[in-house]
């Protein structure tokens, strides 16, 4: 049996440590995905707030998880919904300001170039329609199967393919501009 499903089973029986293992297994990629998803928000703190809320909602709804999809797919479905609400809320409150803090980048590299490239990506993603951005990130960042993306977003597979195609095409124009030093 899939390890995640085993942990879900134990967590349902009251084993909180098992749920802790699920958090440990998925926290980094989930926060990374949400940072890209909420690219207009920019900072890690906002992404972690959403990730924490997603884990809480998953914990509350454990009894409803039937194992027909992977735990990851189910978790990302919850997280995407929470992120959408956050993005809309921020947009309505007009909190879309340039982040003051520098984005986190790995040390030991050409830091300035990486910062500029990351900022370029962030802006390009922020300019995408929300549903295109979701589809592209779930595929190209998280590596979910097309069938899983369709499940997370609640759309047909053909729509998934169409959104990914359009999203990548729109990103191309923004990302292929040279990064100036």
């Amino acid at each position: 049996m899939d390890l995640d499903l085993q942990l879900v089973g134990k967590a349902r029986d009251g084993d909180l440590d098992a749920f802790g293992d699920l958090v440990s297994r998925h926290q980094h990629r989930l926060v990374h995905f949400l940072r890209m998803m909420m690219s207009s928000a920019g900072d890690r703190e906002a992404a972690e707030d959403v990730a924490q809320e997603a884990f809480l909602r998953a914990f509350r709804s454990l009894g409803q998880f039937r194992g027909q999809s992977t735990f990851k797919t189910w978790l990302y479905q919850i997280a995407t919904n929470v992120a959408r609400t956050q993005v809309t809320r921020r947009r309505n409150r007009k909190e879309e300001q340039e982040p003051e803090t520098r984005p986190d980048v790995p040390s030991g590299e050409n830091v300035e170039r990486r910062i500029i490239a990351h900022d370029q990506l962030r802006r390009a993603l922020a300019d995408l329609p929300d549903d295109w951005r979701e589809a592209v990130l779930l595929r190209d960042i998280e590596g979910l199967e097309y069938r899983e993306i369709a499940e997370v977003l609640g759309i047909p597979m053909g729509t998934v393919e169409s959104r990914i195609f359009r999203g990548r095409q729109r990103l191309k124009a923004a990302l292929m501009e040279p990064v100036h030093d």
Partner: peptide
């Protein structure tokens, strides 16, 4: 997109989540 470095959760994030849980 695939080449974008993964910048995940901060130190102690999982502990904060489990405290809330």
């Amino acid at each position: 997109l695939v080449a974008e470095p993964v910048v995940g959760a901060s130190l102690g994030f999982d502990r904060r989540v489990m405290a809330a849980i």
